[in-house]
Amino acid sequence: MVIRARGKLIAALILVAVVIGVLIETAITRASTYYITVPELYARGTAALGQETAVSGNILGNTVRWQPGIRRLTFQITDDSGKSRLAVSYYGDKPDSFTNDWPVIAFGKLTSTGQFTADKLLIKCPSKYTAAGTNG
């Protein structure tokens, strides 16, 4: 009787583990995106068009335009070398600390006009650990 109970228990545990595995697997296929820099995005060429991507870069402060009336935020980001730029448009709230050279990740798609339409932005919170000279 003990053996049977133990067997059942192990079977139930395996079932739970499998369900968790399937849950993770499904969620990953549904909610994972490529994580690349601006030059890497351009290097992908037309393959990048319309594909869910997360692009990281630094904000170019003089390109930031915020239209609160329609909640539209447009700006350009660039990589560390500053050579390639990407124009991003985002509908939503303008995050605080949206300043020049601040790192940002934009989640969204590259459209055929060459503009990146973001549906989510991740902004670093103010530094606790940065080197001297930065603001904060």
Binding site: I20, A31, I36
Partner: peptide, 13 residues
């Protein structure tokens, strides 16, 4: 090629 998961992943799991 690096990939990231978004909140949808965590909420789904």
């Amino acid at each position: 090629a690096e990939k990231v998961v978004d909140n949808g992943y965590y909420n789904g799991v």
